[in-house]
Design a protein around this nucleic acid. Structure first.
Lengths: 197, 197
DNA sequence: CGCTTTGTGTACCATGTGGTACATCCAACA
DNA sequence: TGTTGGATGTACCACATGGTACACAAAGCG
């Protein structure tokens, strides 16, 4: 609640700016100009260009973690409606308002894959964090524990894959239809094999 | 079979090099040194740094297209074993030998998402090309045509999402288990709802 | 009040950048 | 043979880069 330090204000402005346009090969000066300061100030408050990237990665990571927690809370309360929880998760993820943040996430992810510091520090958590957090208290019906883990992992991949599709095509309707297809499969798969109607 | 032009040889060396390490913020000089030339030569044969990136994107795009075609051919011959085709596709995609090329693909993809030229020209084809190519001649049993399209789209997302996971974690076993979970779901979903055993 | 800390602007630095000019080399070809 | 055209090396250009030195202003505090 105390007035934020200039560093915090700057970081927020930077991330806002990166939400549009990403970081790409931007120089300190470009970045500074786009948030209304001088490169001198960025160096002063962050120490170096690299340190800015570190701060950005940490922010992206924190946002990702917060999202995982939020979804965890939503899924967990054993209301036994995983389908509904998944659907609302997708609805939130596919909100156009988040597109910028997600593009930034994937940019960091990809640069991390190439071993570029400091983006690579995002990777270990990018998958395992979610898997840990989404681990279900007990196996799904008809599955072993390992299968359930694999299923959750698959679910994460579905979200990421469709998100990648959505960001590239902008086709929210089509990707949502694909997601509904997923929910359908899950629903059918979770019914015992031969219910005998 | 004629001896390749120096430009072709250079491009191949460059892409080989990018398979390890990506392009990141590499300068002409770094790039030249890593493939054993001078930056002077790269400019001579390509015209500009940007033009090199164009050539790289085209190569990545061509590789992606070739992969789609190969899979199309494998899936199409109506041998009615889509599960087997998917499995072998995943086995091929998850081959560690392709990891470099896939990292490069995702890097280009992410940079394209940020609007960075010339990577953005990869995006339109990155999804629709696959969907067109994988379009099934007739709807899957129990699905409308639109649902079948959505299903294929979902399948692409599963591959991409799991690939992203695999590249980050290196956990081929775990991601393959997740993929098997997917195949399982598909298999169960494709059976008519109540076969009556 | 003076003193210190912090934020900011101006000017600067060495280095690296993409790109060019020009000379040289070498192989193909008449 | 001489000539030509592409490949290559050296040297260079103007400019942008990340980072620094230093001066100055404002605010907190004794």
């Amino acid at each position: 609640m105390s007035s934020p330090s200039p560093r915090e204000r700057l970081l927020e402005a930077i991330i806002d700016e990166l939400d549009r346009g990403g970081l790409g090969e931007r120089s300190l000066r470009e970045l500074a100009a786009s948030v209304g300061t001088s490169h001198r100030m960025l160096i002063h408050h962050f120490g170096s260009r690299e340190a800015i990237f570190v701060a950005v990665v940490e922010a992206v990571e924190a946002a990702e973690r917060a999202r995982a927690v939020a979804i965890h809370l939503e899924v967990d309360p054993a209301e036994h409606d995983p389908i509904g929880a998944m659907r609302s998760t997708w609805r939130r993820l596919s909100d156009p308002g988040f597109a910028g943040r997600e593009r930034l996430f994937f940019e960091c992810y990809a640069r991390g894959l190439q071993g570029e510091a400091p983006f690579d520090r995002l990777l270990p958590a990018a998958v395992t964090d979610w898997l840990q957090r989404l681990e279900l208290p007990e196996p799904l019906p008809g599955m072993t524990k390992a299968q359930t883990r694999a299923f959750v992992r698959l679910g994460l991949a579905v979200m990421r894959g469709l998100l990648l599709d959505l960001l590239a095509t902008g086709d929210r309707r089509g990707t949502t239809a694909a997601f509904e297809q997923w929910l359908d499969l899950v629903q059918r798969g979770m019914r015992p094999p031969a219910p005998g109607r």
